[in-house]
């Protein structure tokens, strides 16, 4: 016989869980519908293909799209070799346990530091000390430090799945350490690198606070070289400026909708890469 008290407890917990799950999912559905409903009608070809003009009093986000692209690409070009190299060092070379622990502790610490602090230090170090001024490049360097832990972690995880026997076999055939790494270890961590890439792109797309002080908020339309060395707003920074400083909510919602769609695509591709490699491993 179950006492009433037990029945009550079970019923209460079930109800509470139901409410919590409904809230979590409802929230997401509300966010998606609200942002899409408010944003999509404002996404026009004119908005996507022009720059802001005071003469005709129109707003275009092409410079912001290009800036985001420059930032993402330059960050990835720098962070990938650094992160993959660090991961290779940690799994293939490092023997001293304390040393490894120190490096791992450092990258955990990096992933916990708030972006506003990255922004400040990036501004002091890259923009002022190294003389990069407020530029996309300074922003990219800041993003490199921020995303380093992500790339190290995903690469490390996939390196651990390369069987030790592969390495032993290569060594047994007389290959040097570098040759083993180049021909056996690195090809085995492609999935980790791709996942790291995708996660980093997501983080860079969503970042604002760290970029406000390092990459600035100009809306000039620039080519690649010019773009890297001059100040420029990314999509998120542009959203912030339009919403908070200029009260242009229609443009802000249009950018928000674009960002939501990009977030969705990034999550989807991360999942697809994950399951593709999982399947291939199992065969």
């Amino acid at each position: 016989m179950r006492s009433t008290k037990r029945k009550l407890y079970i019923g209460l917990m079930k109800t509470l869980m139901g409410i919590a799950v409904t809230l979590t999912c409802g929230l997401l559905i509300f966010l998606i519908i609200y942002v899409m409903f408010k944003g999509i009608p404002n996404i026009t070809w004119e908005l996507l293909s022009s720059k802001p003009s005071y003469l005709s009093d129109t707003i275009g986000i092409l410079p912001d799209i290009l800036n985001t692209l420059y930032l993402v690409i330059s960050t990835l070009i720098i962070v990938l070799p650094l992160g993959v190299g660090a991961a290779v060092y940690l799994t293939e070379y490092a023997r001293n346990k304390k040393f490894v622990a120190a490096i791992e502790y450092a990258s955990e610490t990096l992933s916990g530091i708030p972006s506003i602090i990255y922004g400040l230090v990036g501004m002091l170090f890259f923009c002022q000390f190294l003389g990069m001024k407020t530029s996309i490049l300074a922003g990219a360097m800041t993003m490199v430090i921020m995303n380093l832990p992500t790339v190290i972690r995903t690469t490390q995880e996939s390196l651990k799945t390369v069987p030790q026997s592969y390495r032993d076999g290569a060594f047994g055939l007389g290959a040097g350490k570098w040759r083993v790494i180049r021909t056996v270890v690195l090809p085995g961590c492609v999935d980790g690198v791709i996942t790291g890439c995708i996660l980093s792109v997501g983080r860079i797309l969503g970042e604002t606070a760290a970029l406000l002080f390092t990459a600035g908020f100009a809306h000039a339309l620039n080519g690649v070289i010019e773009g890297l060395t001059s100040s420029g707003a990314t999509l998120t920074v542009a959203l912030y400026v339009y919403a908070k400083e200029q009260g242009e909510f229609e443009v802000a919602f249009a950018i928000a909708a674009i960002l939501m769609i990009l977030t969705f695509l990034i999550n989807l591709s991360a999942n697809m890469v994950g399951s593709y490699y999982k399947k291939r491993r199992n065969i």
Binding site: T24, V35, T208, L239, A256, L259, T263, N267
Partner: peptide, 17 residues
């Protein structure tokens, strides 16, 4: 997937909403 999406939405979008 829903939780992953919530985690990926940029903070300025939360701010805007």
């Amino acid at each position: 997937n829903a939780v992953g999406l919530l985690a990926g939405i940029p903070s300025v979008v939360y701010g805007l909403v």
